[in-house]
């Protein structure tokens, strides 16, 4: 019997902590995973959850997970060489091919930075195809920063701005305090030939888009990655529906005008 709902056994190559509640799994898996897509990862007996891809590589798959529910907490306890069960990749990723030859602004907050990491790795791989890249990362405080090592590396190649919303005292000159939206609001951004990719909590996405609109960006330039409850990921269970669109198969990356104004759906 074949069913799309039966996952594949996958070995964990390593599991390490990014912060106190976010960990990264490296999985032994081959295949191509586009930035913005997601996989269903789970442990039979506990459950499954959708997690976005955080790497661009053909040989392995990296995902970063915040411990919030029973599945993620159980995944965090797994050690190297144990197994997880995954399905995927699912969904439509960021339109990176469409934006070749243009500038990109990537805005992420919290765990959303993980999704952006896959975009950045994609861009690093195809660096000559893109013009200026601007990165905005928002975190709660200094201990919440994920990918510290990578961020330091990216500083050399990209323009990067980091904001910490809950850190009052400026501990280091590199960070701005306040929300990432405040940092964006203060800057002057060039709007023509630019795409904006956003990933983060729902409220942050709404605030950011509002600011970007004021700066003259239009809906076609803004792409957001949405989060919904999902069970099947193949467009069957309907939990992820946003006004008739399935987040799992039509998304999770939507052009803002496709879903943007439906805050309650």
């Amino acid at each position: 019997m074949k069913s799309e709902l039966i996952p594949k056994k996958t070995r964990i190559l390593s599991n390490f902590r990014e912060t106190s509640d976010i960990f990264t799994l490296i999985l032994q898996i081959s295949g191509s995973y586009m930035p913005g897509q997601f996989v269903q990862i789970g442990i039979p007996g506990i459950g499954e959850c959708p997690i976005s891809v955080a790497s661009y590589s053909k040989n392995h798959l990296k995902i970063s997970i915040r411990e919030v529910g029973k599945v993620t907490r159980a995944l965090g306890k797994l050690r190297k060489n144990s197994f997880v069960y995954i399905r995927g990749p699912y969904g439509r990723g960021y339109p990176l091919v469409e934006f070749q030859g243009k500038c990109l602004i990537l805005i992420g907050a919290g765990c959303g930075v993980a999704t952006l990491k896959s975009i950045i790795e994609y861009i690093e791989y195809h660096r000559e195809k893109y013009k200026d890249i601007l990165l905005f990362f928002g975190y709660r405080n200094i201990n919440d920063i994920i990918y510290k090592k990578e961020v330091n590396k990216w500083k050399n190649t990209f323009n990067i701005k980091i904001a910490l919303s809950k850190e009052n005292a400026k501990t280091c000159l590199d960070w701005d305090s306040g929300h990432i939206t405040d940092v964006i609001a203060e800057l002057k951004l060039r709007t023509e030939n630019t795409g904006v990719f956003i990933c983060g909590p729902p409220k942050m996405i709404n605030d950011t888009v509002e600011i970007l609109k004021k700066k003259g960006f239009n809906d076609e330039q803004i792409y957001v990655s949405t989060e919904r409850l999902m069970y099947c990921s193949i467009g069957m269970c309907c939990h992820c529906m946003i006004r008739g669109k399935f987040t799992c198969t039509d998304g999770p990356v939507f052009r803002f005008d496709e879903i943007g104004y439906y805050k309650n759906d």
């Binding site: 709902l5 007996g45 499954e48 069970y231 269970c237 309907c238 939990h239």
Partner: peptide, 14 residues
């Protein structure tokens, strides 16, 4: 046709 998926285990052998 909406549905949800949950896991269930045996109590003596999780």
């Amino acid at each position: 046709y909406c549905h949800e998926i949950h896991d269930n285990t045996e109590i003596n052998n999780p």
